[in-house]
Nucleic acid binder design. Structure first.
Length: 126
DNA sequence: TCAGTGACTCCCC
DNA sequence: CGGGGAGCCACTG
């Protein structure tokens, strides 16, 4: 029996890597993650990556939309779970249910940005 | 190969 | 300020 080979690195895995770097108490939005990976228009794909089955060590709750809102559709418990997790990390929501991004937005170091920028384009070489 | 599918963003009215 | 619509991108069957 051939051993199951781990999936080739894909855009999804790069998204997970970026999200793993977001510290507790901070959030980022889908567009930023896509942009850092060199695909500024791929915000939707980032959302798709987080909607898929993902590794346990990916703090998916720290990704929100560009307005600072929770952007999960579908079953009601899912957005509730994200809000619960964020609150547990000290994130505050205003009366409109949005986060003040200016206060808690994660700003990656230039070194991280450079590293991520090299990941994205590599997709097309595999 | 190709159309369908989103946890997105912008732009326009 | 808000709703509608089109663009965008990676993944899937």
């Amino acid at each position: 029996m051939p051993a199951a080979r781990p999936p080739a690195p894909s855009f999804y895995s790069y998204v997970y890597e970026v999200v793993r770097a977001v510290p507790r108490g901070c959030v980022v939005n889908y567009g930023q993650v896509a942009s850092w990976l060199g695909s500024p228009r791929a915000a939707r794909a980032v959302g798709y990556a987080l909607a898929a089955r993902l590794p346990d060590d990916v703090p998916w709750q720290r990704v929100v939309n560009a307005k600072g809102e929770i952007s999960i559709g579908g079953a009601a418990w899912r957005p509730d779970e994200q809000r619960r997790r964020l609150r547990a990390e000290g994130i505050r929501f205003n009366r409109h249910g949005a986060i003040d991004l200016r206060a808690v937005a994660f700003v990656p170091s230039a070194t991280q940005r450079r590293r991520w920028a090299r990941l994205g384009p590599r997709i097309h070489q595999i």
